[in-house]
Nucleic acid binder design. Structure first.
Lengths: 200, 200, 200, 200
DNA sequence: TATGAATGAGTATTCATTCAT
DNA sequence: TATGAATGAATACTCATTCAT
């Protein structure tokens, strides 16, 4: 390290990585013991920091949970529409998104569990819940495009959407619990069930 | 107090109604604040009894939660196969059960929420979880009958089952959250999506 | 205990005496270590109860301090005008009150120390402070009677009042610190200084 | 960094001004929130330095408080006997000192508050308390000269002293709390009350 | 049984102090 | 020296559980 960098390194900045560690530790703990069972002390030691340090990064348990919730929401939003291109034929685009939903649920399972758990917890504020609901909006749009193009059934959008998502969620949840391996083959089967249900 | 009344007092069962009150109070609280947020004190006052009294009916919080979980499981099991008759044609019988699942989720929403919440909580023992999984067995049988009769797709039973249940769960959950009214019409739409997905 | 009293004794009431014990313990601790140095744990064990019990009687440390402050104020108010009769000649009545002030400061020294200490503490609310100020009103009236009767100097009432009280407070405070015995003789001397200062 | 600058850095004294800032910040905080309510963090940020820096100037909170206490004592001692000349007639000299006491209490109010507050706090050592008491010695001498000259009453010196000081302290304290303006006129009135009380 | 006050272990949070930069 | 993040012991407060009535 040269003189120049020393000048700027004088003040130790709040470690960005530490927030990440804390989040990771919290998600793991929640997956294992549920929101009901986690303490700030446990989170701290799982993140390999002192309890006091935890409070440098988050003013309270409440704030930590809410921040993590927001983080998870952001992560899911980023994945949902990855590689989606509205100019693609409907079914192709639909499958991209459907697979993304599946991807999020499987690869970020702890986040999904955490979000589900939090929804009824006293930690999450109404505002946070509200924003979360709004996040579903683009999915509504997708479903409505399908209806407009007469490719999928002309049913209530809410029904179509929850149907589209429900199978994925239930499948992933139970496969994690029961140890059932999630294979390409199974995913394909689930997609077909879903698509056959939706198509006009 | 004489011998007679003593004897009588011993025989007198714990007030059945009170257990019910306690369960109802707990379910309501869990729906509103999650398992993370309930205390024995709150349960007691919601059930309009003293904390001490709560401990006459349940040795510990753990026991209360587990007893309630078992109760909920029993309630769901009773509903799932109500009016089902294996001699009915497959689709008819399938719809009976599918509607029963829907019925349970809507009319006993707090129970469903409670069971979901508990699954990750430190309160529920592994044994309890195991028994719960076994409860799904008859549903497997149903699905397999459908496959055997070549009426529904020859996909993995696990996939078929989670697909069948997922839409219902997701639909009811979000309708409760968003205040969306659950109508016969919507239920019918959801069933059609589900059936069209499953059918061979 | 007969049947009748049993009927009413069924519920153990919040022990009135316990509040008193808590107050006494707190005052003693504050006298010895100052408001800065007391913890809820210490108060509890000085009052021979569990920490949790302390919180049955007072929702928080703040509330405990404020309640005690109010209690002390009440105690002082009760003493200040004890045996005072406006129909007595001014000097006689004045001396009754002056001696009462002295009596409070000496016999309830911990309360006086506590009140002094609290005045600058973050525990005491502005409202509480305001009420305390108002408590001085009757003393103003007394001083104004003396002025009206041309018995004491026609100076600013605020000056007369703080002068009247200041000597007492300073005397008692330092005598407690230095271990100087407060005798009848010394009190008489102090009263004479005070009276000679005030008289017209 | 070369040898020269290293040497120079070692010699460079701790910034004198910074100590002053720290003291000023502490006094202000204690006036507003009491000794009970101040933290090292608050002091540091009020003094516009980092917490770590505070510990360069003072090894501990204890030491800071004690150093400030000593500083305050010194400041008061310097003022008390300012312009006093034993060769002046008693009353003239007495008034000089009396006015000095008044001056200290008004112009260095925070210091007075701080010293009062500290007296009961766990921070101040017995030694410090002892030295403080000794500081009163010259005032005793003054009072005894008055008695010897038969100008003031032949009462107990302790009584005379606390009487002399009490009115001042009480007056200033309450005027600060209530916002009452301290005027020359009021000071004169207070002095007269005091003198008339003391004179033989 | 029923009550709710009492208990004390446990949890969230603060804060004096240290330390790497 | 100066900084402010990191530490962990101490403290305020909670809550499952017990117990006297």
């Amino acid at each position: 390290m040269n003189n120049y960098s020393l000048k700027f390194a004088k003040v130790k900045p709040k470690d960005e990585k530490k927030t990440e560690h804390i989040f990771k530790a919290t998600l793991q703990l929640v997956k294992d013991k549920g929101v009901a069972g986690i303490t700030m002390g446990e989170i701290a030691s799982a993140a390999k920091i002192a309890t006091g340090t935890l409070y440098i990064y988050f003013k309270s348990k409440d704030e930590l949970i809410n921040a993590l919730f927001t983080e998870c929401r952001k992560a899911s939003a980023e994945i949902y529409f990855k590689d989606y291109d509205a100019s693609l034929p409907f079914k192709t685009g639909f499958k991209v998104i459907w697979l993304n939903l599946m991807k999020f649920r499987t690869e970020h399972f702890e986040k999904a569990v955490f979000m589900d758990q939090c929804y009824h917890s006293p930690f999450i504020t109404e505002t946070t819940k509200h924003i979360t609901k709004e996040m579903m909006h683009p999915l509504y749009k997708l479903v409505e495009r399908g209806k407009a193009e007469k490719i999928i059934k002309d049913a209530d959008s809410f029904i179509l959407l929850t149907f589209m998502v429900g199978g994925i969620n239930e499948f992933v949840k139970h496969s994690k619990y029961s140890g059932k391996k999630i294979t390409k083959e199974l995913i394909e089967q689930m997609f077909n069930l879903c698509w056959d249900g939706l198509k006009a």
